[in-house]
Design a protein around this nucleic acid. Sequence first.
RNA 1: GGUCCCAUCGUCUAGCGGUCUAGGACGCCGGCCUCUCACGCCGGAAACCCGGGUUCGAUUCCCGGUGGGAUCACCA
Length: 469
Amino acid sequence: MSQVVTRFAPSPSGYLHIGGARTALFSWLYARHMKGKFVLRIEDTDLARSTQESVDAIFEALEWLGIDWDEGPFFQSERFHIYKEYLEKLADSGQAYYCTCSVEEVEEMRKKATASGGKPKYDGSCREKGRGKTDSAVIRFKSPLMGTTVLEDVVKGNIVFQNQEMDDFIIQRSDGMPTYNFAVVVDDITMGVNTILRGDDHVMNTPKQILLYKALNSPLPTFGHVPMVLGHDRTRLSKRHGAMSVTAYRDMGYLPQAVLNYLVRLGWSFGDQEFFTIEELITKFNIPNLGRSAGVFNPEKLTALNADHIKAMPSEKLALYLIPFLKQKGYPAEEGNYLTGIITTLNTRSKTLIEMAESASFYYVDQLEYDEKAVKKFLKTDILEPLAMLTEKLANAKDLAQETQETLFKEVLETTGIKFGKIAQPVRVALTGKTASPGIFEMIDILGRDRVISRLNHAIKLISGQQSK
RNA sequence: GGUCCCAUCGUCUAGCGGUCUAGGACGCCGGCCUCUCACGCCGGAAACCCGGGUUCGAUUCCCGGUGGGAUCACCA
């Protein structure tokens, strides 16, 4: 086969959701893997439901994910003249015909067919009447009355459809607009798309599209229908399943790499491997390893994968993703050693960037918020002496390298006779206001002498105050 | 309801006739490590939907049932 050309063709009637992102990802990965092309097409023929906001939202989500396209974006709304041309081709060659039956009449036909136990479909009244073009006539495709149409699906295998199941479906509406099935086929043909990876929900459309390809005398593309993503209740994913837009995950502190990794593993596998970088996915992605059954979206696993990616990402790079969350909390965050230092102490303790930004609070805030219980439990008079001694030593040390700190602590422990555990928690509370935090030494190292001394002194003052009460 | 698809631990999955007393991951439960919290490490509970075939032998192949999903528009 010549160069692979895949596409993603969302309709702009809302944000890009997880399911859509996954099919986009599969097509994109396949194109990248095959060194082919990936085209983006916006299916906006439904003027009533398509909005510019949705178009922008889709671009934004795709860009965040890092899914880039080689051609497009094409807009179907700008391609009417092309559809028109192909429509006329079919009408002129007698493969399609004008139909003047009203919506009500067709409704009636379907009802009658259903009543007599048949399948609701158009009965073909205008099929052989040779009607001409009128203002409100639609164009219907002349489907074969018998025989079968087979879909050679690269993920599901061969699927055979009885042609009798299909009726003469409309390809041009009464307002002159092409319908979905027709526009898609014309677009894919004219854009050179030869590999179509899309959701399972399109399987039933495919025989119609195959018929159209044949009528238009075009070679069939390779079709592959990937299973759906289901909600926790095993029904098709929708708004009621909670946050489903891609950008919602960005806002909740997820890394695009993690979202991509999770999505690809939902329906595709590579042995026992769970963690993938984008580069790895491009080299390893393949069609045979795509699954055939629908999968349930599991937010917890996404979160776990997010934690893994946070741990794996170099601090300098992670900083870029974290900064917006820090700023959102009002912290004066900027790239540099302070931030990367902070990150190295927090990346094994955060599942999301939101969490990380929250944990980073004590690194940025001037007025520490003290956890009341922590203060009561650890900042007690019995620790006053050791704490003061330690503060003194830290203030006068030549440097605060972690080894130096250890010796200083050891000295305090030796002269006071207390154990490390006894002084660690008070110091922790003094430095962070909380009982849970990164390791003492690394925090002191990063916070720097000034902050450490002032916080320690503040804690000492706090204890003394309690004493006098 | 018609048509189509699917079916391994709660969830995502490995498995492509014997290697399966079915492996990994998330979650869950223990333990270890330890300055707290995490991380990490060790261990545990947890699945081949049911019934027929085919075969010396089925989780793996075939048929039926059941269950789940998708789709039946002048929406995409």
